[in-house]
Nucleic acid binder design. Structure first.
Lengths: 130, 130
DNA sequence: CTGTATCCTGTATGATACTG
DNA sequence: CAGTATCATACAGGATACAG
């Protein structure tokens, strides 16, 4: 029970898989896509409309990444025209709950951030004036 | 009470401050720095050691950003040699709690991600073989 | 509709060297 | 110790055109 040999896999370790996991979800598009799918399963076009500012490229790219890591399920109904539905996997669902807290925080506290930024920049400006 | 005029500020809106807030914290370095400071106030050097792989440049840059937005407080004791301590503000503390959930998720579920990825890539490879 | 393939530019970030 | 300045580069991500 030496504290010495404690492997201690943590996000703070540069070469830990946990860090990789963190980087995967530390992306605004990933967070928004998971958030959207958390509300309900959706198709490509619907997400394009739901998530303001995302491009088709980033949507596809991020979805593939999430699918690859088992967070999102891609259901291709193989019809013509194509009907592809994306939904969260159970694992993705658990992540989405942690993420939802973030979204809520952002929506609740951005006024405080804006205020702090303005104050900071004002002080900055004043000190520059001498 | 028309549903029509509902402003509905949401992270899904491209030009909403909430989105800006989200982008601010959707950065691996910001998440890690806040996580480190959540454990205890720390100095530059300590964070450099604590957070594996971060460069002095990114550390300073991200800290300034967080400070500017009122999430981190910078205490310069004005001594020689310099003693600069960083700590979370109350606002930063609330964010850190939401973020801590993410860190925990990453550390708990990265094995599942790794497994899914391996499986996905294997299937990928197989389909490419024909 | 749901993508994929290219091209192209800005930005993010690391390395390195220097300063108070 | 705590930064700042500069340079070089890789990559993110947009625009556009094409395809099944």
């Amino acid at each position: 029970m030496e504290a010495e040999k404690k492997p201690k896999p943590s996000v703070f370790d540069a070469d830990c898989s946990a860090r990789d996991a963190l980087e995967l979800i530390a992306s605004k598009w990933a967070i928004l896509i998971l958030g959207a799918l958390g509300e309900q399963p959706m198709r490509n076009g619907a997400m394009l409309r739901k998530i303001g500012g995302i491009s088709q490229k980033m949507l596809t790219q991020t979805l593939r990444q999430l699918e690859c890591n088992g967070l999102v399920l891609r259901e291709d109904h193989g019809t013509v025209p194509p009907q592809v539905v994306y939904r969260l996997t159970p694992l993705g669902g658990t992540l989405n709950e942690a993420l939802a807290g973030l979204d809520r925080w952002a929506e609740a506290n951005f006024p405080a951030l804006d205020a702090a930024r303005e104050k900071y920049l004002a002080a900055q400006c004043e000190s520059t004036r001498r």
